[in-house]
Every structure is written in C-alpha cells, then in structure tokens.
Simulated scan of single mutants.
Amino acid sequence: MARGVEMDPIVIVGSGLAGYAVAREFRKKNPSDPLIVVTADDGQFYSKPALSEALRLGTPDAELASRNAQAMQLQIKGEIWCATRAERIDAEAKILFTSAGALHYSRLVLALGAEPVQLPLDPISLGHIHSANDLASYRRFRAALHGKRSVTVLGAGLVGCEFANDLARAGYQVNVMDIAPLPLSRLLPPENGAFLRQGLERIGVEWRLGSGVIAIEREGPGLSVQGAAGDVFHTDVVLSAIGLRPRTSLLRDTAIRTGHGIQVDMHLRTNDCDVFALGDCAEVEGMWLPYIAPIGPAAKVIASNLNGGSARVRYPAMPVVVKTPDCPTVICPPPPGLEGQWCTESGDLGVQSLYRDVGGAVHGFALNGNCVGRAPELRESLPMLLG
C-alpha cells in the first residue's frame, strides 16, 4: 500500500477474538479513521473455546464460524487483508511489511495469539500429529476422525482435558498422555487433579501419565505410539495439546521488548508508544494470561488509547471454567510468585482448595464437583489481579 495524502490507518495484526474485539471497540469510539486487519487466515469470526466442545454438542464444523470476512469488514467498517502474512516491522518508519506489500500505519495493534508447542520428535512422527489451535487445523482434525474409533490426546493440560471430555462423550475411545503425574498439574493442587482424573475415568478416558511420547509410526490403518517408559499402544488419531507459546517472532529484529510474550504496560503499550499488544501474545506487567476473560477489558483499553486516551487495564480475579462437564472444575490461579500454599478440603462429591498467603488471606482457588457453585462468592472476596 503506497503512502497517500490520507492519514495512515490503524493496523491490527490478527483476526482472532482479540483482534476483532479491538476493531469493534475502536469503531464504537471512532467511526471514520481508516482501519485494516491483517490476517494469515481467511478472516472468519469464530469462538476458539467452542472448538473443544463442538463434538459433544453436535456442532457441525461448517457452523463454527458465525461471520465470514466480508461480513466482518462491514461490521468493523474497515479492510481485512486475508491470507496475508505479517513478515517484519520497521517501527521507526512505522511500516508493517507483509506478503501483500508494505503497509504504513499510524498505530499498530498486535493480536498475534499463540502457537502450539511442538514436541521434539522426528519429522515422520510429527506428520502423524494433529493440532486444533485454530478453525482450519480443527477442521483437519475433524476430517481425520471420520470413521475412526480411538484418539490419543498428548497433553493433560486445560485444552487436553477439555478435548478428552468432548471426544469421550462423542463416543471415541480416548487416551490422554502426559509426563505429569496428574491432569492440569500446573494449575491444580494434587487433590483437585486426582478428582478430575477420576471424573473423566468414569466416562472412559484412559490416562497414561508420567510418560511422554518418543515416536509415532503408521501401523496398518492406524498408528503405533511409543511411550518413554517403553509402552507401545495403538490409536487411530493423535491430537497434540501440550501447550502454547506466544507468537513473538515478528518482533525479532525490532527494539520492541519481549519476554515470555510481548511486554506491555498497564496501558497495553509496548516500549514503542505506537505499538500495542493483547491476548495470548501479550505479557501484561509480567503476567501471561492466555484466557478469554482478559480480552474484553484489554480491547476497551486499547480502543480508548488509540483514540488519544490514557486508559489503564484493571483485571479483577478471573476464574477459568474448565469445559469438562463430566467433572465440573473452576480454577482461579493465584498471582505468579505470591508466597503461600494451597489448603484443601476433599469429599466424595467435590474438592475445594484455597490458596492462602503467609498471612492467611485467600488469593486463589480450585474447585471440583459440587464445590464449583462457591466460585462466584469466592471470586468476590479476592483482591484485584492487576490494577
């Protein structure tokens, strides 16, 4: 795009929930300034969290997207550059270089999301593994399930557990494999993790915990999976859900600071005052929050600041509802680095764990089973996460 006499546009890189949320909020405050969304995919709007429950709910994959790119252009009153890769940023000249050409911007919003962590396996093994990190990869996974009976999920984290519940309820034989001893080991205390494991066992989920995968080979119509402990088992389809990594490579040759993610302050600005970031790619005041709840407040703050404001993001305690209806689970992790310990009460029908600091104050909770109803009350008693 050649630089013209009109003002350069606001450019948003990414058409996921975070990118489109900023575009919508910006348009509420500013109906006329030029706006361009650059996306490597087809620009459809869909709910990524809905992917891990679509089978159980019987949602055809053709119905997962609620709007196509043309409809989104009308909604945001701007352009959407589909199938366009963001390749490089010249922050000093305020140019985004893309596969469709150079794009001058007035301000830049990075909603790059996160990418699946890849297992350190040989290329043949990797070729047998599916992911479901976006609509296109999810549709390929759904196509691979056609006519199959068994699925192995690599990773017993948040997404892995949700897919395990979804697939088991859809009638598949499900194995979940993880090097950790319990599901959701990074978020749940051991008693809560054990309760979740037992809850999904009741619907047929089999756990292969404490062992990673070292190779996957074709075996007749299916696959042979070899574990690090020497175990070998057969499966039809393999889905990787071992974790996500913020996308930061676009900033590799810039002075914009990155840590685990793109580092932003409470205005959601990077150290370049004309570049903002939010969502799974952003690290806000040292916190990486790859969940849905922070996106709405963040989008409002960025939209205000794109229009000359000085808004600061404020995050209340934000519980994460795990989509495992056969073992209801809600987690509100404590702030990272806070000294304290989990205090757990267990029963046959549920588990409640409260994270208490050294003075006894509660800063987080983990609830399973019939204890999840306490989440709203507990949330209201927690201090602000940020702000």
Rank of each mutant, 00 (worst) to 15 (best):
residue 119 L to M: 13
residue 344 T to C: 13
residue 18 A to T: 09
residue 255 A to M: 13
residue 176 V to H: 06
residue 121 L to G: 01
residue 342 W to E: 14
residue 159 V to G: 07
residue 65 A to G: 00
residue 94 K to V: 05
residue 358 V to C: 14
residue 108 L to T: 11
residue 44 Q to R: 15
residue 247 R to W: 04
residue 9 P to A: 07
residue 95 I to Q: 02
residue 150 S to V: 04
residue 122 D to K: 05
residue 53 E to S: 11
residue 30 N to F: 00
residue 22 V to D: 06
residue 66 S to H: 08
residue 352 Q to K: 15
residue 302 I to K: 04
residue 224 S to H: 08
residue 23 A to I: 01
residue 231 D to G: 14
residue 172 Y to F: 15
residue 21 A to N: 09
residue 234 H to M: 15
residue 326 D to R: 09
residue 158 L to W: 06
residue 102 A to S: 11
residue 50 A to Y: 14
residue 203 I to K: 10
residue 98 T to R: 04
residue 382 L to D: 00
residue 345 E to Q: 15
residue 362 V to C: 11
residue 359 G to A: 06
residue 8 D to P: 00
residue 308 G to S: 08
residue 165 N to Q: 04
residue 93 A to W: 00
residue 340 G to N: 13
residue 33 D to M: 09
residue 35 L to N: 02
residue 241 A to Y: 05
residue 47 S to Y: 05
residue 239 L to I: 12
residue 237 V to C: 07
residue 352 Q to T: 15
residue 69 A to L: 00
residue 176 V to F: 09
residue 380 E to K: 10
residue 374 R to Y: 03
residue 336 P to V: 09
residue 387 G to L: 10
residue 310 S to R: 13
residue 327 C to D: 00
residue 301 V to D: 09
residue 14 G to E: 03
residue 276 F to N: 06
residue 342 W to Y: 12
residue 333 P to E: 06
residue 7 M to S: 12
residue 156 A to N: 05
residue 316 P to I: 09
residue 55 L to D: 12
residue 297 P to A: 01
residue 373 G to Y: 03
